[in-house]
């Protein structure tokens, strides 16, 4: 079970995209690019629209995929929280959601990448979102 889910495009009226994270090289390990392509049907949908995820806080996140000439698509991805247009985002909420989204991604990429290794790495560097051993 995961507490992160792929969802349909939400109603964006009265909302803004709040930048959260950018990755210039999603294919550094190609299995990550393959995971995004598979999960969001990117070979068919290309750049037509972002992918969307619902995170544990209830917020929806947009994954905006980046194309780069000469490289397989997607070459990069930006992660944006969809929040009320004029409201700031609570940083602790954002951090907890990012942790959960990354954990979902690692689980989806799969062997040899494991959420256990992700959690261990978080604990080694004392990240607030990392679960206790």
């Amino acid at each position: 079970m995961t507490d992160v889910n792929v969802v349909e495009k939400p109603d964006l009226r009265g909302k803004r995209l709040s930048f959260a994270l950018a990755e210039d090289r999603v294919g550094h390990y190609p299995e990550f690019r393959e995971f995004f392509a598979r999960t969001f049907d990117l070979d068919r949908r290309g750049l037509t629209e972002p992918g969307f995820l619902r995170a544990p806080s209830g917020l929806t996140y947009a994954l905006i995929f980046i194309g780069r000439s000469g490289e397989a698509f997607p070459s990069g991805v930006e992660l944006h929280a969809i929040v009320d247009a004029l409201e700031p985002i609570a940083e602790e909420t954002l951090d907890r959601d990012l942790w959960a989204i990354l954990r979902w991604m690692i689980g989806g990429v799969g062997n040899p990448w494991t959420v256990e290794d992700f959690d261990r790495t978080g604990r080694l560097y004392r990240l607030p979102g990392a679960p206790a051993a």
Binding site: R33, L79, T121, G122
Partner: peptide, 17 residues
């Protein structure tokens, strides 16, 4: 090794961690 080295700079994990 994936733990901790490759995990540290994996896509999106690097910018986060």
């Amino acid at each position: 090794r994936i733990f901790p080295w490759r995990m540290m700079h994996a896509p999106l994990v690097g910018p986060y961690l």
